[in-house]
Amino acid sequence: MIKALLYKEWLKMRWGVLSMLLLFVINIVYIILQLDYTMRMYEAHQIWYNTFIRGMLFYSGTLVYLPFLSGLVIAILQFYPEVSDNRLKLTLHLPMTELGITLLMIGFGTAILILTYWVAYALLTLLTTIYFPMELIFSMWITSLPWFLGGLMVYWMVTAIFIEPAWKFRRILLIILAYFLVQPLITVYNYNAFAHSLTKFFILSLLTFPLFFISLDRFRKGVY
């Protein structure tokens, strides 16, 4: 049963996941090619100087928004088919507990999202180690983690927004809330800006995970 449910989730999102992976790979390869190019055109130590001393972020740019986009895309692909024509009723009618069904769906989406992020991180890290020492890699992780945290947050918020049955007011409020929650995370600051606060923002992101319980309860009660 679990396998079948995950199979359904995968059917919905597979093209989206592969596209996002491809986008990540293209973007990261582009970043590295550009880095390689500037290192050849100028001297490598000059690029190091700009990066370490002047705080240039060669990896910011589109990469800031890709985790956000993938969270959004996966949530939409997974839940738009469920809420259009109220298909969620079919899903919740499956002979499993409703909590089990929804947790599996959202857990699977989260896992796929994290896997996508992991692939992106691994590739970026692998390619960056050619040009930079570990200090920069650590700094890059700390600097870019909030963007990925923002992506998870968007995913969780958007699932709650989709399951929420009352279109007009409540969904708009949740969208506004999601915007203000995520916006600070996908803003580019100086490097290592979140060095002391990643845990706090991680906990804050986790708080958005169970919001779908509320939406689900409202869906079940038939709030209009």
Partner: peptide, 17 residues
């Protein structure tokens, strides 16, 4: 219980924002 905790989380997030 689960629901009540989620509602508190929603409140915390709203208050935070």
């Amino acid at each position: 219980m689960r629901l009540q905790v989620s509602r508190i989380f929603l409140m915390i997030l709203s208050v935070y924002v």
